[in-house]
């Protein structure tokens, strides 16, 4: 594990407007995540876990407070730099997979690489094959997503998150749409990738059963984190 925190969050607040009322989602969160860590953020629906994940992933902005990613203040980045940061340093795994239906498994995985101009087609192919092998879906490379089961789709999504060789993979309830057996297989896969590739994983879940399986567990209640 690296000693320098990959993510540093200081007094982050975020509220949402619901009609005339402002709903506070995060009420001054402080958090450090070290590189190579496997962290799960557990909380009930509406506790603010997805909001925090979105802020870490630079897909949303805090109302106040500061977020540093890999030593860089996120607020100081412009739109293009944030896009670059998301593309090269962060991988996303969504609860509902978010695969592009008209692209094959391999093409879906290749998608984030297409905006990295320094990669040749051969390099892209090699990285896709490696990611496919990591998630055990090599034989499904030409399938369209609608031909896959939920577990397989989530593995494709994980491969897509891995393929850019990011420093951090964010997963928002990656097992919520899966049966418990498949969910455990996905968790096993993520843990295995964390060990093999030393990628930092940060994911949120409301599943208390995961507590015993991961390195670091954080609880979030009403927009505040407790260890």
């Amino acid at each position: 594990m690296d000693s320098q925190p990959l993510i540093r969050i200081h007094q982050v607040q975020k509220s949402y407007r619901l009609g005339e009322v402002m709903i506070p989602a995060l009420k001054g969160v402080d958090l450090n995540v070290a590189g190579g860590e496997f962290t799960v953020l557990i909380g009930a629906s509406g506790s603010g876990k997805s909001t925090l994940l979105n802020l870490i992933g630079c897909v949303d902005e805090p109302d106040s407070g500061e977020i540093w990613f890999d030593g860089q203040a996120v607020a100081a980045l412009n739109e293009k730099e944030r896009s670059e940061l998301r593309n090269r340093k962060i991988g996303f795994v969504f609860q509902s997979f978010n695969l592009i239906p008209v692209l094959s498994v391999a093409e879906n995985i290749e998608l984030p690489l297409l905006i990295q101009p320094e990669l040749s087609a051969a390099e892209r192919r090699q990285r896709v094959e490696s990611a496919l092998a990591d998630v055990g879906l090599a034989e499904y490379r030409h399938h369209l997503p609608d031909r896959l089961s939920g577990g397989q789709r989530q593995r494709v999504a994980i491969a897509r998150a891995l393929v850019t060789q990011p420093k951090l993979i964010l997963a928002d309830e990656p097992t919520a749409n899966l049966d418990s057996k498949t969910a455990h297989m996905i968790i096993d896969l993520l843990l295995d990738l964390n060990r093999k590739r030393n990628v930092t994983f940060f994911f949120c879940s409301h599943d208390e059963k995961l507590i015993g399986r991961v390195g670091r567990v954080l609880h979030i209640v009403d927009g505040l984190i407790s260890a």
Binding site: G57, V59, E79, K80, S83, E84, L85, R86, N87, R88, F92, F94, N98, I100, L111, P112, I115, R160
Partner: peptide, 16 residues
């Protein structure tokens, strides 16, 4: 719209 969001999350700029 969700696909647009997914592409943006992967680092596609609004222009792309």
């Amino acid at each position: 719209a969700r696909e647009m969001g997914t592409l943006r999350a992967f680092g596609f700029t609004p222009q792309r």
